[in-house]
Amino acid sequence: MSRITKTLENLKQAGRKALIPFITAGDPSPAFTVPAMHEMVKAGADIIELGVPFSDPMADGPVIQRASERALAHKMSLRKVLELVREFRLQDDATPVVLMGYLNPVESLGYQNFVDKAKEVGVDGILTVDMPPEESSELLPMLDKAGIDPIFLLAPNSTEERIAKMGQLGRGYLYYVSLKGVTGASHLNLGDVERKIKEIRKLTSLPIEIGFGVKNAETAAAVSKLGDGVVVGSALVGKIESAGEDTSLALRDITDLLSSMRKSLNA
């Protein structure tokens, strides 16, 4: 059983929802990332999604685009993100880490090379925004062999056929994109999400974590009730951006936000 599955099953048995923060690796600087990961775990994170910066983040809104640009200005790369995970693992062997990003850096490293390194440093899951299952027949068996979970995205307009397919090919959890749009958008409609999650539940037994549009403790609590947990990204990355050079402020702001979400999720 993978570290992700184990974590989510434990939560389920305890009757709790998962809190999954996303930050972009290397934002605002490489030195910030690993301490921030540890602090987020202390603040109640169950799984960490670590964004791999890409020059052309087509599915991201302005907040995460700018985070990518800041990280790339520090020469952050997939190779270096893997090293950050290695460093994180020196002190934390329990919290699952999912790398989220775009396919080209993975292609550039080479699929097998990437999978080997990811396994070696302790990566648990891979979420590649622009790699639908149709184009993943080469990478999936490699991930499977390495015991790394491929996490797929589901959208409000995913067809039944595709939901079933991703239920089959996905491992760990499915990431439900709560709205049609880019990360950080704000036109979330809870009624729509609820209807769609019901449809998805009929087609797969994988846990469903809901992201896009989760901004604060209230939306986190409301959204989490509809699935198995929430992913919060732009709201955290926005705090990091506002803090500017003051990384201790950034750390305090993101842990405060996560703590408040944790509290509202547990309530």
Binding site: A59, L103, D130, P132, E135, L153, A155, N157, S158, V177
Partner: peptide, 12 residues
């Protein structure tokens, strides 16, 4: 070639 896009674009 191929189709390398985010899920929301698969239907359109």
């Amino acid at each position: 070639g191929g189709v390398f896009v985010a899920e929301t674009l698969m239907l359109p």
